[in-house]
Simulated assay, not measured.
Amino acid sequence: MRRSNAVRRPSALVAGLVGLLMAGGVPGLTACGSGGPGQDAGAPPRPTGRGELAATVRTIPGTPSPAVRAALPDLALYGERDVIVPGRPAGSLLKATVRRVTDMKADTLYADMYATAHRSAPEPDVVDGSTLAVTVARSGAPGSRLHTYRLPLPDDELDAFRDRNDSSGWPADAFAGPNRPYRPARLAVFARPWPDASAATRPWPLGDPTTGTETPEGTCTILTGTRLTRAERLATEAGPGVVWTYAGRRLQLTLRPLLPHERGCGDLGAGPPL
């Protein structure tokens, strides 16, 4: 049950989210010298290393066990200005799309995410309401540079937020290149038992997916190299709704590409809250 304060419309959150992921800066914030237009004077410099995470935004549904690790973030921004967003799934396989943005857009995105995280007071006593997980990185702080803030997000604001971080609605001059498919170097396979014996099945030939890291979303294992390529092909050919079998066990599998900053099952999810 959601506590009554979960449905309040926190004025600070609204103010912070209004500018989130838009082309302009956050109202009331001043620009700093090297950050470019839209850069928050209170924000650290945007990380610029190749494959270095700058910020992610993730909406966590208000359910008892949301699929956080087995789902991609709503948006991830990297140092080389690549923005990665979820694409259209291919059967059991989740896919992502990447597009490079301009320096100005990257600075604005980072500043807005930083401002949203730091100007909105978290409410830890919200029991099961939807939350916004914003992770921001600080350049030059190895080991402690990633910080995740979980902020309450009333349901009536979810649609507006999704609209604001929908990169398909950004103007053409925000981008520095065309869309391209994201090609992961690692693929996480989440396996859960499937009780329905009536569903059509296919055999899973790439090793036991039930031995790995236990998570609320299922057992997580990592595939690389030729096994990754075969898994992508198998999931695409099988299509949606397939149930997989291994050693006589029926399994629901979710194949989730790891993003550039992720190396294993322990790197997935929204991170520890502050």
Rank of each mutant, 00 (worst) to 15 (best):
M1G: 12
R3Y: 11
R3N: 11
N5L: 15
A6I: 01
V7I: 12
R9H: 13
R9T: 14
P10I: 05
V14G: 09
G16T: 06
G19A: 15
G19W: 03
L20N: 01
L20A: 10
L21R: 02
M22C: 13
M22R: 14
G24N: 12
G28R: 10
T30I: 14
T30N: 13
T30G: 14
T30Q: 12
C32I: 13
G33K: 13
G36K: 01
P37E: 15
D40I: 06
D40A: 15
A41H: 15
G42Q: 12
A43Q: 03
A43K: 04
A43H: 08
P45R: 11
R46G: 00
R46M: 11
T48V: 14
G51P: 03
G51T: 09
A54N: 06
A54W: 01
A54L: 05
T56K: 00
V57I: 15
I60R: 08
I60N: 01
G62T: 10
T63I: 14
P64W: 10
P66M: 09
V68H: 02
R69M: 11
A70S: 15
L72E: 05
L72I: 08
P73I: 04
P73E: 06
L75F: 03
L77R: 04
L77K: 01
V83N: 02
V85Y: 08
G87D: 06
R88V: 13
P89M: 11
K95A: 14
K95R: 14
T97W: 09
M104V: 14
T108Y: 00
A111M: 04
D112Q: 13
D112K: 10
M113W: 00
Y114S: 02
Y114V: 00
Y114N: 04
A117D: 00
R119N: 11
V126R: 05
V126H: 01
V127A: 14
D128P: 02
G129F: 06
G129Y: 03
T135H: 01
T135G: 05
V136E: 04
A137Q: 02
S139T: 15
S139A: 13
P142S: 10
S144P: 05
T148A: 15
P152M: 08
P154K: 02
D156I: 01
D156W: 05
E157V: 10
L158Q: 08
D159W: 10
F161E: 03
D163K: 12
S168F: 12
G169A: 11
A172Y: 03
A172M: 10
D173E: 14
A174H: 00
A176K: 02
G177T: 07
P178D: 10
N179H: 13
A191E: 00
R192F: 03
P193N: 12
P195Q: 14
A197G: 14
A199M: 15
T201R: 00
P209W: 03
G212Y: 07
T213E: 11
E214R: 14
E214Q: 13
T215Y: 08
T221R: 02
I222A: 05
I222Y: 02
I222D: 09
I222F: 04
R227L: 13
L228I: 08
T229C: 08
L234Q: 08
E237T: 15
E237G: 10
A238R: 02
G239H: 10
P240K: 11
G241A: 11
V242E: 11
V243E: 07
L253D: 00
L255F: 07
H261L: 07
H261N: 12
H261K: 09
G264V: 05
D267W: 00
